[in-house]
Design a protein around this nucleic acid. Structure first.
Length: 289
DNA sequence: AAATCAGTCCGGTGGC
DNA sequence: TGCCACCGGACTGAT
């Protein structure tokens, strides 16, 4: 499940192989063609596959950046600039190869949905569950939800933004875990890193935002940022379907102290699990209050 | 008016 | 071993 650190790893790996390249040819899987023709909206959002192919062919990739859990491909065709916004969803992955057979794991090879051919090789988007998204825009403002995302967590404004959102009536009565996982409050923090940060802080995921002091909220925010940074250094967490673009797993999963645990790594108490905001939330009933 | 809820995109996985 | 419920980012649209 790619969160901010995993997406950051993908972007850093894509940059040297993608920037400056021109997309000569585009392939879209039969599966996506069929899904779209059945009136569904798999992966290619708000665009017909043939239209997407025609528009993407001849695009030059001028930059690749990350915003929250989204990958931004900055494109241009002549003087006209475009933005291809890509979300990995649950199981999206990019591979940079010369031949599809270089993608060694069958489950990724079986679910290839978009291929960008350049003169230097292939940029391949695989997505097992098809929760991923691609939107071809002229600018961020073409898809308004992008404008509502919280600042990057490493941005100077992010802590202030977090604290002021916590004071809003719509958030202050909510469980803290639901709030730190909300992309309008903090960018890029999903279930894994929310679980880890709350464990490190000794805060139960169900604790209401208004019951946590300003100091503790500041500390929690800093803890989230630290864990996100640590995970970026470790190459992200490979929980199920995350791979970097060379098909390799990350290393952060070995450092997770609560996510996916049955026993607390601090005190040995069996962990508990409950649903918060519809999401499975694991915590230690002894260490987290 | 705003908050909440169901629906949407799916297949791997685990329980029986 | 075959079936089936479950899970999940983040949006949209209805209530």
């Amino acid at each position: 499940m790619p969160e901010l650190p995993e997406v950051e790893g993908v972007v850093r790996a894509l940059r040297p192989v993608a920037i400056g390249k021109t997309i000569e040819k585009v392939q879209v899987s039969e599966t996506v063609h069929r899904s779209k023709s059945e009136g569904k909206d798999a992966i290619l959002k708000a665009i017909d596959p043939e239209d997407f192919i025609k528009k993407m062919e001849g695009m030059e990739i001028s930059d690749v950046t990350r915003r929250s859990k989204y990958i931004y491909f900055h494109l241009n065709k002549g003087d006209t600039e475009y933005l291809l916004v890509n979300h990995l969803g649950m199981s999206g992955a990019w591979f940079a190869v010369n031949d599809l057979l270089e993608i060694s794991e069958e489950k990724f090879r079986k679910h290839i949905h978009v291929i960008f051919e350049t003169k230097k090789g292939l940029l391949v988007f695989s997505d097992i569950r098809r929760f991923g998204e691609m939107r071809l825009l002229r600018a961020e403002s073409d898809f308004p939800p992008l404008l509502l995302m919280a600042p990057e967590p490493f941005d100077n404004m992010a802590l202030t933004h977090f604290l002021s959102m916590c004071d809003l009536s719509k958030y202050k009565d909510k469980p803290i875990k639901e709030v730190i996982m909300d992309g309008h409050v903090i960018s890029g923090c999903g279930n894994i890193y929310a679980t880890e940060a709350l464990f490190k802080m000794g805060i139960r995921p169900s604790r209401k935002v208004k019951q946590i002091s300003k100091i503790r909220k500041e500390e929690l925010f800093i803890t989230i940022v630290d864990i996100l940074k640590e995970s970026i250094v470790q190459g992200g967490s490979t929980i199920s379907d995350y791979r970097n673009i060379n098909g390799e797993a990350g290393g952060m999963q070995h450092r997770l102290k609560m996510y996916g645990r049955k026993i607390c790594t601090e005190c040995g108490t069996p962990t508990k699990s409950l649903q918060i905001g519809g999401r499975t939330s694991v915590y230690c009933p002894s260490c987290q209050k």
